[in-house]
Design a protein around this nucleic acid. Structure first.
Lengths: 223, 223
DNA sequence: CGTCCACTTGACGCGGCTCAACAGCGGTGG
DNA sequence: CCACCGCTGTTGAGCCGCGTCAAGTGGACG
């Protein structure tokens, strides 16, 4: 049996959402078919236009997915963390990867061949259901973001993003939700599709209207 | 055996993408579990916030999905045609429907209970694969739209939309792709997240720069 | 023929972008 | 150790795209 040098356990795979519901022997089958790969901060997993032809699950660290635009602009589509996956498009069509995936810290993935995944889906209905569930929730969050981008002003979207970040990075205190921002203003800007100057101004505006309080060292309190 | 009053055939279901790969007996099982419903133009299938708890496949006509916004604005997320489906979110979570679905012409759907769909997915791997494939491509087109909304000016997005529409509604001619617009400028605006005035001006601008030619009665030629 | 609705066009305002200048801070190499 | 550089954040001036409001045209249809 393989052991996992990331987490030292024989089946670290049980920590990953879409694999969790599989039986032990099914999990071991996954492990046998998985190809592990590690990345340092800044390294690229795939670039836009590449043909990856793998199903990729994040096993450690974080990645960001973004689309490059002619005039040097970027749009960050999302951040991937433990258990998130991508590459599902390439399972069926020999399609070009639509975005670039880059490690934002030391990180690792499990890669699985398209054909292997396909037979796993056929053999294990719980696995298919997990994937369908994950894709459904991704669709929903994309739909939601799309409507907000077109209908809400920056200030609202920024405020929403701060609250989402605070779920993962914030601590409840007497004054409100306290958080050290895990992103630079530049990164927030790319995530929201605006410039860093606009982010700076919007943060100040939120502070002026008493929605947040800003402190040195990227600390924020949400009120 | 049930027969289908929409298409007169015993298994019209074979025309619907996600059911096509099923065996005849599996298709008949679908038919046995399906609840059909018809809608006239303007009727609502579900509203935002409703709990539908059904998987819904379009069997006839077209629907549009949109999100309402406080100040009366709407964002059209997409149009659904024969074989498209929605409601996959409700299969797992008792979740509120995130958007409204409305018939834009006389139309019909097949509804399937969440529990039924779940057992179908478990029993029939080809069906699971079809759904995963459809969801993947939906994810991809949403990602693409999201990046274009934030990075491209209206004129570019409008031009892109016209070309997409021309695939379904256009005819190749010596001058270029000819099409009668299936949408009003108002509807195009809601689809792109801008006002009808902006659509009008952008169309004129495209004509001025010789990208298209406009004729009465919503006819366009793409050059 | 009159009504209604889609579309057009202009004037004006505002949000976010661009460009530019500058301050703080951390990292690195001489 | 300090000087320097690059990255982050701040702030101002001016611009441009799209929204808003308002007036008006033209085509479809009862």
């Amino acid at each position: 049996m393989h052991s996992c040098h990331t987490c030292q356990a024989p089946v670290c795979i049980s920590k990953i959402g879409i694999f969790r519901q599989l039986t032990l022997s099914q999990q071991q089958q996954v492990i046998a078919n998985v190809f592990r790969k590690h990345y340092k901060k800044g390294e690229i997993v795939v670039s836009e236009g590449d043909h990856l032809n793998k199903f990729v699950v994040v096993s450690q660290g974080s990645f960001k997915c973004y689309i490059n635009h002619k005039d040097g602009k970027q749009k960050t589509l999302y951040y991937l963390h433990l258990g998130d996956f991508f590459g599902q498009q390439s399972l069926f069509d020999r399609i070009e990867n639509p975005y670039t995936v880059e490690a934002i810290e030391d990180a690792g993935v499990c890669m699985i061949d398209a054909t292997t995944i396909e037979s796993m889906i056929s053999a294990q209905p719980e696995f298919a259901l997990s994937i369908i569930k994950e894709l459904s929730s991704k669709v929903q969050s994309l739909e939601s973001e799309l409507s907000h981008v077109t209908l809400d002003p920056l200030e609202t979207r920024l405020s929403k993003l701060l609250w989402e970040l605070s779920k993962d990075f914030g601590v409840q205190s007497t004054l409100g939700m306290t958080m050290k921002l895990p992103l630079t203003q530049q990164e927030i800007g790319m995530r929201l599709g605006v410039t860093r100057e606009s982010v700076s101004r919007a943060l100040k505006q939120l502070e002026r209207t008493n929605k947040i309080k800003l402190y040195p060292n990227k600390r924020v309190i949400l009120l």
